[in-house]
Design a protein around this nucleic acid. Structure first.
Lengths: 185, 185
DNA sequence: TAGATCATGTAATTTGTTACATGATTCG
DNA sequence: CGAATCATGTAACAAATTACATGATCTA
């Protein structure tokens, strides 16, 4: 396969895989929900859908409803589902930790596409990446605190706190999944 | 003035205002420090510097050092400093809260450009935006928890935790500044 | 002399933004 | 009828990425 999909393309692919949708539906999802924070602009979504269609990852069917204007409803193809799963199953590397947006996007699609087992594995891997990374940042920061102006120190502290918050979320998510796992589901 | 500056342009302007730098210096800053996470690619930085120069916000002077290759060292012009201060002094609106990257970028340059007083005002405004916003998110989430699949709930929980972490940082930064303020500086 | 590092740049391509255009239908 | 909403799209532009090109100097 050629160049990797953009974040927006991954988001669209993940959404139409969960349930078929028109470009308009997808725009509404992005404009209404706080999640993801993708652009709901037609200039972004319609071209992205066509790119996905050109790569045969999704497939649009014109629905001519008596009355309203015809909609183009997209579904994921087998190749699209396969590509999505490849993306979701990618082991989380160290650099993913600094792009948590993408991580959360993957997480959001993961359960439906790969199942709880995979989600748990993913979260545990993420947890260990974060747990290993944060102390090195903290160490660097406390070592250099004396020589740094407050604003620089605080700006870095902001970043580290974000990672720490992500780690706490990750642990809480692991607890949620292991609790559910014990009683079936 | 015309279109607003891009985040990268603001970052470059803020940096060269603090101390004059060549494109190469700036690339090193982006590749070496975890802060900001801008691209260190020449294809991003050199064109951005030229755009700033074309708008007369920065000014480059060729330095011909005997030995090494000549460098183009950029400084902020008076107009550049004015533009930077306008950007820094902008009141933080509700939507800034969801783009904390930009907020932190502004914060990082603020003390040197506008002084501690402004930083404190900025932090306090940010604190109240966050403190007002977060409960509405939490309320929405707890109200809908029962109807949402775990993964969707957790994805939203991730976002809210991030805001909460930002709020805690904000309060800690306020304490830092008010503590320093009391004993001079 | 070969390779690393300093230093600046360009070109092709991709992506997203903003703004506009279009057309049908429903509702007041 | 006029406005809102459903629904799809295009065009101009801005910005970033990747990859390449260039050339000087320092060092092993």
């Amino acid at each position: 396969m050629q160049r990797p999909l953009s974040p927006l393309e991954h988001a669209l692919l993940g959404l139409v895989r969960q349930n078929p949708a028109s470009g308009y539906d997808l725009r509404k999802i992005f404009s209404a929900t706080p999640m993801g924070s993708f652009s709901d602009s037609p200039g972004a979504i319609y071209p992205a859908l066509r790119r996905l269609e050109a790569r045969a990852l999704i497939e649009g069917t014109l629905e001519d409803r008596s009355g309203l204007r015809r909609r183009n409803v997209f579904r994921a193809t087998a190749a699209g589902t396969a590509e999505l799963k490849r993306w979701l199953a990618r082991p989380s590397a160290r650099e993913d930790v600094s792009r948590m947006n993408e991580v959360i996007l993957r997480f959001a699609f993961m359960e439906a596409a790969l199942g709880r087992r995979q989600v748990q594995r993913f979260l545990q891997q993420l947890e260990s990446e974060l747990a290993a990374y944060i102390p090195t940042l903290r160490a660097h920061l406390t070592a250099n605190r004396a020589t740094m102006p407050d604003s620089a120190w605080l700006a870095l502290d902001f970043g580290i706190r974000s990672y720490e918050s992500n780690l706490e979320w990750c642990r809480s998510a692991i607890r949620t999944y292991s609790a559910k796992g014990r009683r079936g589901a």
